[in-house]
Each structure stands twice: as C-alpha cells, then as structure tokens.
Write a protein that binds this DNA or RNA. Sequence first.
DNA 1: ATGACTCCTTGCAGGAGA
Length: 268
Amino acid sequence: MAARAFFGTFMKIATFNVNGIGSRLPALLEWLERESPDVACLQELKAPDAAFPLAAIRLAGYEAIWHGQRSFNGVAILARGASPVEIRRGLPGDPDDAHSRYIEAEIGEIVVGCLYLPNGNPQPGPKFDYKLAWLERLIRHADTLRGLGRPVVLAGDYNVVPTDFDIYDATHWRKDALLQPESRAAYQRLLDQGWTDALRARHPSEQIYTFWDYFRDHWKRNRGLRIDHLLLSPQLAQRLVDANVDNWVRGGEKPSDHAPTWVRIAPS
DNA sequence: ATGACTCCTTGCAGGAGA
C-alpha cells in the first residue's frame, strides 16, 4: 500500500489493550471505524502470529505489524493507509525473555514503540522481579530513543498507576504491584529522562482512568485506574494538542477491561 | 477474602490478568 503523506496533517495516535484479539475483533473494528486513529498500538493479543486477523484489519483501512504469542501477551502496531516499518521486536537487554511485549516501528517521521509492561502480581515474588527488570530495560531503551532527537511515542499498557490520583481509591490496591513504590519510582525515572505523560499534561487536575476491573461493577461505578500511557519525546510533546480516552468503548458489547487512550499531534 | 469477571487453552478446570 502506498504510504499516506502524514506530513502536514494532524495525527491521532492511540493505545488499546484489547484483552484478546480473537474475542475483541468486532469491538476493535467498531472503534477503528468510529474514531479513525492514524496509529493504533494494541496489547494483549493473546494469540499466535498466525491467528492475527490481518484481512479484517486491512478491510478497515489499516496495515499492521504484530508480535504474537499463544495465550498471553502479544502486541501490534496498526497504521491507517500506511505500512508501519518495523524497527525492532522485543525489548533489548535480555535475549532469554520469551514474552511478546514490545514492538517498534517507523510511521512517516514518527517512531512508535508499543509496549505491554508486565503486571508483576503477586508481589513480592519472581513476577514482580521480572516487572522491575523489564522497567529497567525499558528505561535504558527509552534513553536510546530519546537520544535520537526525533519525534518518538512510547505507548502502551504500563501496568503502573503513577500516583494515588490515578486510581479511584488506592486503599484496596496498596499491596498491588501496580502501586508499589518501586514501580512508581521507575516510571518517574522514565519521565525524568524528558518524556511527557500526555494524558496528565493535558489534564493536570482531572481524574482520568483507562482500565476498569471486570469485577464488582467497576465500570458502572467508575472505579478505574490510569495505567495506559502515551509518553512523548520533546519533539512530539511540543506538538501535543489533545489527549483523552475513548470511554464509550468500555461500555460497549463484550468490552475489553481497558479503553483506548490517545493523543492528537499537530503537523510538524 | 483462597472471593468476584473474562480471557485463554490440542480446554472440559486452571492459569493469568490487574
């Protein structure tokens, strides 16, 4: 497919943890149709590479690259009217890491990193150790990306609630891996490299959530967590014009427990 | 609270998610 000219146009870049591309395909296609993101980073495909529904996604007007895995994990990058040019799959720093949690592409002038950070529960334990080690690898790779001096977005499910303001009530989650001081400190060190948390930058004093537990009517009661983030390099942050969550998707038929989260970027 | 809900599996109950 011929690459669309992204130069000179506003771009909507989104991240969406679909929680199973197999059962979520109708909801994904409805969202693509209604919101027309230019770039969509997907997480938790929960499907092997061969099961990726490329034909349906192409019919919706998107090209895609993906890194699947049976049952768990799995990430993809979709681009509307353009082919993402893959830069890497897998986060550097541990050749033995078999989880499909990172994929990176160039789309026009923009470098897009799509990530699914480990949940880390229960903590303490090996899963939490893996989460913290993964965060360190992400921090190192992000430093490399930032050093490019290019427009870069690191988008995905970070599985980190940055502060107690990013959750309906921290009390019952105090021991959860998503709220641990180590997780939050690592996320903060990432930001301190010079990345902008786009949702928080656009909405400094508004409680915004991107995930609502399937349990206990959390969606109906708006008991959410903000864990899906888009981090912008300075070259992209200066072009940030809007950021928000497509909450309506969480209220749809057979929804994911996450809602799509997005930024709008002005032309360069 | 070893709970709940929903996804996945060469499934049929159990692991994982957050």
